[in-house]
């Protein structure tokens, strides 16, 4: 039965991907991509990767889709029919695919317990020693935050980079004579994005149902975010998923009640502060362990007992991840949403 389900999902995946390639309406393509991500999340669950499934659903089907839709609102949904030559790209991608197919014939059988991956001493230690060394039931969290904590620090930095990158790109002033305008504006960089009162920006004041529903919903979204953040040691979840959910709560608020109100609640400057703070918190844990005489991110030294130190370290770095991810998602959303408002104002 499980095999049939997975074959069915896989074929659905391929059908979805082909449809994405085929459709000309970019809204449709975006929604199909979101569906593909969601099917992928289901497949990840069947492959026992619950944490990954959670993230794929939140990011691939959630945040990415919001970003695409936000962009499409600014650039329009129609794809012009392409006159580009398609023979060479097709040949190239098929050739690359051919190399992969060629490789698969000597790959270990899927699901077999004797593959190098399963018998590796890495796997052995993560599965058998980490319950004693780190004592966190969710091994993904243990590996993510401790054994390979530096990768996760890098990942936090990547999301920080994306946050400041989007703000840098989208806060540039519109139009071709950018230099002149930019200098005038340079003293108050985001003046157009912050406290400007404009009642027209309040999204749909008459939609009573969304207002009421979201007012009821948002506290639970945020609560769930906290749960995912702090329950990541025991079940699927952790800083990244929590950050996305938390940001989703604010984005929902912003979509229903308007960007201005959200910005009063959480000004851009504060979001920027949190964006940096999360990275500094994560790195700070590493620096403290260095000051205690260990290596960077060696949580064993944080407290008297190594296991307690690991717990504290993981808690703090996950918090750092959660804060930076929330702030980065909000920064990116502010960037895109703010862009559409400035465009509306300039009458474009």
């Amino acid at each position: 039965m499980e095999e049939f389900t997975s074959v069915f999902l896989m074929l659905l995946l391929v059908a979805g991907a082909l449809a994405v390639l085929h459709v000309r309406n970019l809204f449709v393509a975006t929604m199909l991509l979101s569906a593909v991500s969601f099917i992928m999340a289901l497949i990840f669950v069947m492959l026992d990767a619950v944490d990954v499934a959670f993230t794929e659903a939140a990011v691939g089907a959630g945040i990415s889709t919001v970003l695409y839709l936000g962009t499409l609102a600014l650039v329009g949904p129609h794809e012009k029919s392409s006159t580009k030559k398609t023979a060479l790209p097709l040949l190239l991608s098929l050739a690359v695919g051919g190399v992969l197919i060629y490789a698969t014939f000597e790959l270990p059988t899927v699901g077999s317990p004797d593959t190098p991956v399963q018998t590796s001493r890495l796997t052995d230690r993560f599965l058998n020693e980490s319950p004693k060394e780190i004592a966190v039931p969710n091994i993904v969290t243990a590996v993510l935050a401790s054994y390979r904590g530096f990768d996760t620090f890098g990942e936090t930095t990547v999301i920080f980079t994306a946050g400041i990158a989007v703000l840098l790109i989208l806060s540039q002033v519109r139009g071709r004579r950018e230099e002149d305008v930019a200098i005038e504006e340079s003293t108050t960089p985001q003046s157009d994005l912050t406290a400007e009162e404009d009642t027209s920006l309040q999204a749909s004041p008459h939609d009573l149902v969304p207002h009421v529903v979201s007012k009821l919903l948002i506290p639970f979204v945020l609560l769930f975010g906290f749960y995912v953040q702090f329950h990541g040691d025991f079940g699927p979840g952790g800083g990244f998923q929590a950050g996305v959910i938390f940001a989703a709560g604010f984005i929902l608020y912003s979509l229903v009640f308007g960007l201005e109100y959200t910005k009063k609640l959480l000004p851009l400057r504060l979001v920027e502060f949190f964006l940096a703070f999360g990275v500094l918190l994560y790195g700070g844990v590493g620096v403290v362990s260095m000051l205690k005489g260990g290596n960077f991110l060696d949580y064993n030294l944080l407290l008297a007992s190594p296991v307690a130190g690991q717990h504290l370290g993981i808690l703090l770095v996950e918090l750092g991840v959660g804060i930076t991810v929330t702030a980065a998602m909000l920064a990116i959303f502010y960037g895109f949403a703010g862009r559409s408002e400035t465009n509306n104002k300039s009458g474009a």
Binding site: V279, V287, M290
Partner: peptide, 20 residues
């Protein structure tokens, strides 16, 4: 003994400070 990591985390951790 910390030089290998310091050469990387100094710029890495200064970036968020710079951004503020």
């Amino acid at each position: 003994t910390q030089a290998p990591i310091l050469a990387i985390i100094l710029p890495l951790l200064s970036a968020p400070i710079c951004a503020l």
